[in-house]
Amino acid sequence: MRRVRVVGVGSALGDDAAGVLAVRAARAELERLGVDVREVGAGAHLLDLLEGPDVVIVVDAVWVQGMEPGEIVRVEAGPHGLPAELRTSLSSHGVGVSEAVALASAMPDPPRVILLGVALAEGRGGVRPSARVLGSVPELAARVLAEAAALSRG
């Protein structure tokens, strides 16, 4: 059985909360599958969570040119980390999700890293996530669960 870890990334506020909310929604089911479930507020804190498991599913709000808010994206990290269009760092000290994944990918025997992201509305702040992003959280949670279930069986 593969060791699978799911990490929700983001703050508790605004559209950025989408990844964390989806992981919370799926947490009980994931834990039943034996998946290690974590939440981190910033990419710098993801660094140490990419060591150990065979697969890490990172769940985060993303901003990609041309994507509609609420749209779900799935990408898998290659030898250089995440694709360039996802490398826009909005994070502390220049160490974001993409930098953390690129660092892990540069090391010997890196884990498989899958990013499940939901596109956020540009410049969207505030306390509550926007309706379109919030509306995608159940589907994102279901995708995380389905992915983790298939991987832990495999």
Binding site: L47, D48, E51, G81, E99, A102, L103, A106, M107
Partner: peptide, 21 residues
Amino acid sequence: SAIEMAKDHPDLVRTAIAIKR
């Protein structure tokens, strides 16, 4: 960058990550 450094010094980066953790 640290990413370039990690290719040549993985043990150093691993040590750092463990202490940071």
